[in-house]
Write a protein that binds this DNA or RNA. Structure first.
Length: 648
DNA sequence: TTAGGGTTAG
């Protein structure tokens, strides 16, 4: 005769399907089905077993045979339905419950509503639980918080958190996760600071949140001050460095992590491989690949994908392709990465072949093709791909539209640009900083200043790139005063800080209008107020500005003081100015320099020979003429030199 | 019983 004790003993030794079915048979034969407690024991075992192919079906069949299932059995079957991927069954089962729910019942139901993101049913569960008197139960409140946050109702989650008499570690981690997932930095920071115990999970998610928002210092502070760290925490910090362009720091921290004896897992490997990708030195990346192989992680699809991306960045698309071809498992990332790899390496044909062969093209796949065409100077083709994307019914996102708009800019198609802008308005896209910037840039380059400024005026969030597009665009269109006014406005706005591109804009505005004093003022301002080290383009602008205005000696001084070697356009601009202003002494020095720098450029030979001619140095003229490729060059060389000087 | 953390492609 089977008793409950005997049943438990059997179940503890049950390792085969055959044995389980024997237990079942005896269970039914001995009439234990009428014993709600015994039934609950068997039911509990069957829901979790892998001995039968469909344990839920198996359990449901058994459940229906039980005479009067107790609430434990009901909870067991509800939990099983949820865990086996049938959350929608749960509320139907709940509605037919023959036993009164207990404190365990509603948390399970709340979790199923969270799984299905169904806040209406979640609310009903909440009401039921309160009506049964479980409103203050901590487990219930934690489950409800999670449900509300999964459904995007952060306010409700917070109300549940604040309303209860007590909260535990789960409550704190849940409300923190709610804010982190929603990207609510301020709220997350507040909760994190008040947490009685900052778990490794909490630290990891804060570091990751700061990392996503570009707040590297804040992430570092939390990481350094953490009492508890685990592999997740290290990965979050490494990834934070990686995604914010601090690749050396990422690799350095990985080295520290290994030095402390932490194991290397898949996720950290992915981040580290990603940190190796942008380097021109391939040694670190190859070492990481070796490490992945030794750790047995190189066959993981995510590591494979990161490696495909890395070898593509090393311009070794063949190595990337070998990994792609030999992978046992490919996912969306694999396809998108290898296609991006071909495009980065200029192989548009190969990219297209893979693109048409790939099984599911998502938004990223299409965007990869569009931006790849743009990178490879095939902007018209990019627009064709965009048309096909829309014909396939795939919704472009802001990143897609940025590439599409830049195609319009590249082919100077105001008409298409306007229609894309119209599409953006009709579909109520959020004009993000990058999207707004590309629209402004498009209108500016097409000469539609009004439309450009209209976009700028209607933007909610104006980042530095938008201001730059306006300042540079106005300067480019000859509206120098307006451009400089916008710069002042930018300086007085608290949200954006000028960067090196801003100063390229203002300096070229000054050059355009011959504003020497203003140019010198801005050149000092960028260095002393904003601590921006001038780059070769800033120097180029200043040299040209000074030279054109006749300050040839000052321009020469500046060019000599450059910390980097001046490029041909900078020297060329100065040579043009020397000729224009008749400073043959400087002109000769600069001309000689240029003839050495670029021996095939006949224009420089011509200017220099003209300088020699005007000084009556006929032998030097003859020598120069001998080294020129073309015999009949125009005598007055201004045009070619001027052209060069405009290259900024 | 309940909840929670890190990773890759445009």
């Amino acid at each position: 005769m089977l008793t409950v004790n005997l049943l438990d003993a059997h179940l503890a030794r049950c390792f085969s399907k055959r044995h389980l079915l024997q237990i079942h048979a005896q269970f039914i034969a001995s009439g234990l089905l009428a014993d709600a407690f015994a039934a609950s024991r068997l039911l509990h075992f069957t829901t979790a077993t892998s001995l039968v192919p469909f344990p839920l079906n198996h359990s449901l069949r058994l459940f229906r045979l039980v005479h009067r299932p107790n609430v434990f059995s009901w909870n067991t079957i509800l939990r099983a339905a949820r865990l086996h991927g049938f959350p929608h069954l749960c509320l139907r089962l709940y509605a037919s419950m023959s036993a009164a729910p207990d404190a365990y019942t509603h948390p399970i139901l709340a979790a199923t509503c969270a799984d299905r993101r169904d806040v209406d049913e979640g609310c009903q569960v909440h009401c039921h639980a309160v009506r049964y008197g479980f409103g203050d139960n901590l487990y219930l409140r934690n489950a409800l918080m999670s449900m509300y946050s999964a459904c995007g109702c952060l306010g409700d989650a917070r109300r549940v958190f604040d309303a209860g008499p007590t909260s535990d570690a789960v409550s704190w981690n849940t409300i923190l996760a709610a804010y982190v997932q929603a990207g609510e930095v301020d709220q997350a920071v507040g909760v994190f600071a008040r947490m009685p115990e900052q778990s490794a999970a909490a630290v990891s998610s804060m570091v990751a949140l700061f990392g996503r928002r570009g707040m590297v210092d804040e992430a570092r502070t939390v990481f350094d001050g953490a009492e508890r760290r685990d592999v997740f925490t290290w990965t979050a910090m490494i990834s934070c460095f990686e995604r914010n362009g601090m690749f050396a720091e990422a690799l350095g921290l990985f080295s520290d992590m290994r030095g402390e004896g932490w194991p290397v897992d898949e996720a950290v490997m992915v981040s580290v491989v990603a940190a190796c990708a942008p380097s021109k030195v391939t040694r670190n990346g190859e070492a990481c690949h070796g490490l992945a192989v030794r750790a047995g992680l190189d066959s993981r699809v995510n590591v494979q994908n990161a490696l495909i991306h890395m070898y593509s960045s090393f311009l070794d698309v063949d190595a990337a392709r070998r990994l792609f071809d030999s992978a046992q498992c490919l996912d969306q990332f694999s396809w998108n990465s290898i296609i991006a790899g071909y495009l980065k390496n200029g192989c548009v044909k190969d990219a297209k072949a893979l693109f048409s062969a790939m099984p599911d093209k998502d938004n990223v796949s299409w965007t990869t093709m569009i931006s790849g065409c743009v990178q490879n100077n095939q902007s018209s083709e990019a627009l064709t791909v965009f048309d096909n994307m829309q014909a396939e019914g795939i919704r472009p996102d802001e990143v897609t539209l940025v590439s599409v708009i830049s195609s319009c800019t590249n082919i100077s198609s105001l008409e298409r640009g306007k229609s894309v802008h119209e599409f953006i308005r009709e579909n109520q896209y959020n004009i993000t900083v990058i999207l707004g910037t590309s629209l402004i840039d498009m209108y500016m380059k097409c000469g539609c200043l009004e439309s450009a400024l209209e976009v700028f005026d209607t933007m909610q969030e104006r980042g530095t790139p938008c201001w730059n597009a306006v300042i540079v665009g106005l300067a480019m269109n000859g509206l120098v005063t307006k451009s400089l006014d916008m710069f002042s406005e930018m300086e007085s706005s608290s949200t954006s800080t000028p960067n090196e591109i801003t100063f390229i804009g203002v300096l070229s505005a000054c050059r355009h209008a011959g504003l020497v004093e203003e140019g010198q003022h801005f050149f000092k301002l960028m260095q002393h107020k904003y601590y921006i080290v001038p780059n070769i383009r800033h120097y180029g602008c200043m040299v040209d500005l000074l030279g054109r205005a006749g300050y040839v000696r000052e321009a020469e001084e500046l060019i000599k003081s450059m910390p980097m070697s001046p490029d041909v356009p900078a020297w060329g601009a100065l040579l043009g100015s020397c000729w224009k202003h008749g400073d043959n002494e400087v002109g000769e020095r600069v001309g000689k320099k240029l003839v050495n720098l670029d021996p095939h450029h006949d224009g420089f030979h011509t200017v220099l020979s003209n300088i020699y001619a005007s000084e009556g140095m006929w032998q030097s003229v003859k020598d120069l003429r001998g080294s020129m490729k073309q015999r009949h060059v125009p005598k007055i060389p201004g045009s070619s030199v001027v052209e060069l000087s405009q290259s900024t």
